[in-house]
């Protein structure tokens, strides 16, 4: 029983991590049909910015809990800056080109940003453990967990709910759904697709940066963290269905909980869990669990 609960908690924490890492990718894909490899850079820049701001914040005498604001500030700064710059200065020139050219352009941008990251922050790692230390630990079924990681579950929940409500209940969300369904007709109907695209890309970028910014206190923020995230986010999005937010949620839960079970029961196969689920889903339902239907145009 204890093990079961622990697996569930570990699984939920890891699922939330996966969701936070994947949601930005899926938002951008859902609306713009762009697989954004630069997502990995958003994550990495978010983490570096967060570590820097947290470090700077705790140099001051301001109240300790304010450190959390630094995390969200970092995500906003990075997301808005890179979102606007990339979309306005690069991607909009490529919308008329093949999808894979755009993917490759984001891949190229990722390579460029990897080195920009090194130019700004160097190779030494950054630590920002204060927020994690601040929240302390809690015992669940006689096992100690750190509270900070548990808050990740809450954050993922809030983000998921916020995006869902935003999409289904607001006017803006309905416009977005129209664009997702048919870009050209939406434009003909008077929706400003350009603005929708920029806004979506910025939101996706903020999500990517927020993933990194929130994870930063639990890790060593060092070179190479962006690459790992791309593959992980990509796998979750493929499993859940590209561009579907409920898909990303289910995909994260599926992978996260299976992985936690593997770690506790069969640690040898941990590496394969994500690939195995992906292979299984691909074999049975290659478009992903929650893929939106595609119209066939003649």
């Amino acid at each position: 029983m204890q093990e079961l609960i622990v697996i569930l908690v570990d699984g939920l924490v890891f699922s939330s991590y996966l969701f936070m890492v994947a949601v930005g990718l899926t938002v951008i894909f859902g609306v713009m049909k762009i697989l954004n490899v630069t997502h990995g850079s958003f994550y990495a820049f978010g983490a570096y910015m967060s570590a820097t701001l947290i470090g700077a914040y705790y140099e001051t005498d301001l109240p300790e809990f304010g450190g959390f604001l630094a995390i969200f500030a970092a995500a906003l700064i990075i997301g808005v800056f890179f979102g606007v710059v990339l979309e306005r200065c690069l991607l909009r020139f490529l919308y008329h080109r093949d999808e894979h050219i755009i993917v490759l352009a984001t891949f190229a941008m990722f390579l460029v940003l990897e080195d920009v990251l090194l130019m700004i922050w160097g190779t030494d790692p950054y630590y920002a453990f204060e927020p994690m230390a601040l929240l302390g630990s809690v015992d669940i079924v006689e096992l100690t967990f750190d509270v900070y990681s548990l808050t990740l579950i809450g954050l993922a929940g809030v983000v998921c709910l916020g995006l869902w409500l935003g999409l289904t209940k607001t006017k803006w969300g309905k416009l977005l759904l129209a664009v997702i369904f048919d870009r050209e007709i939406s434009q003909a109907m008077g929706i400003n697709v350009t603005v929708v695209f920029t806004a979506t890309f910025v939101i996706g970028a903020i999500m990517g940066a927020l993933g990194g910014a929130y994870i930063a206190p639990t890790i060593s923020v060092s070179p190479g963290i962006g690459v790992e995230v791309i593959v992980l986010a990509f796998a979750v999005v493929v499993i859940g269905g590209m561009g579907s937010i409920p898909g990303a949620l289910i995909g994260s839960l599926l992978v996260g909980i299976s992985r936690a079970a593997a770690v506790h029961k069969f640690p040898e196969i941990e590496l394969f869990v994500i690939y195995a689920i992906m292979a299984l889903v691909l074999a049975i339902r290659p478009e992903g669990l929650f893929a939106p239907a595609q119209a066939r145009k003649i």
């Binding site: 622990v6 890790i219 060593s220 963290i225």
Partner: peptide, 30 residues
């Protein structure tokens, strides 16, 4: 380079063995 060790730490804490060998390095170790 996974960087997330929540489940592994739980499993190690629940294991009966006292001694834990690790060759982690760099960012993963930290």
């Amino acid at each position: 380079f996974s960087g997330q060790y929540g489940a592994e730490i739980s499993a190690l804490m629940l294991s009966k063995e006292k001694l834990v060998h690790s060759s982690l390095w760099g960012g993963d170790l930290e």
